[in-house]
Amino acid sequence: MRLDKIKYFEIHVDSRVKEAILNIITKFKNMFSSEDVVAEEPAQNNVADDITKISSEPVEENNPFPEPEPVVRRVIRVPEVADDIFPPVDGNKVLIKAQPSATSDQCLFMLNRPLFSGHSWWFPDFESAEGSLLAERLFSLEDVESVLVNEATVTITRKDKNMFDWKPLGSEVGTALRELLEERGELISEKIISEMPSQDEIQEGIQKAINEEVNPGVAGHGGLITLEHIKGNTITIKMGGGCQGCSSADLTLKQGVHSSFRKFVPQVGAIFDETDHAAGLNPYF
């Protein structure tokens, strides 16, 4: 079939469109034919050129109604209005609430009176409990791996990670805490209290740990750890960059940040992560 016999297009399309279509057909035929099929010389302003010109022009210039830039809003976080967890009680009654963690490996015991005012202390094992009646008594219970005392709370990590019911051990912890408070002994060793560094010294050491060990370690994943605030020897950090919202953030905190902080400042007590892992412009879930 000769190309000039194609009259069908002349009826329906104008000449510029016809030229463009003929060129496409010619190129297509040349792909499968040993003989070159010569097409008519394309006009200067063919349709393909027009289309290229249109598509290469900036959209903004042709769009009379450009979409406004989306507003990126700052999320305000205010602490919720919290009710007292304990009802008012007469006398010296000790009230204790137990709250197992979501993973059930730890349990937080909250008391209606302070155990270690202004400070916190982490007892990683029985040996570290020497002289501190509170920790000595708790380590005497079956299945206690570590003890963290912070103000009016005690957090216990259990050895058996497959045990999810905290009620039996929780009941024993409650009894032990009540007995200790009634005995009025030295809950935390005098040595620990007297050798506690100043808040400035702790802050300096933690900042050094962050700068020299923690942040270089997480930088490979685009992470950034910042010291948010410090109260006594209790540290609160924030995880940013790639750490924010990362599913491994808890592991990084417990296995990396904790050990690094305690290496630089052995007297560090509780370490909290105040990061909102669901916030930010690009959180990873």
């Binding site: 809003r73 700052r74 999320v75 305000i76 976080r77 205010v78 919720e80 967890i85 009230l95 204790i96 609430k97 137990a98 709250q99 197992p100 963690s101 979501a102 015991f109 909250m110 009620k167 929780g170 009941s171 912890v173 409650g174 909102d276 669901a278 916030a279």
Partner: peptide, 15 residues
Amino acid sequence: ELNIWKDPPLPTFDV
């Protein structure tokens, strides 16, 4: 904007 989301509280029990 104000954050109004809070995860469900962990259950507690008296000891």
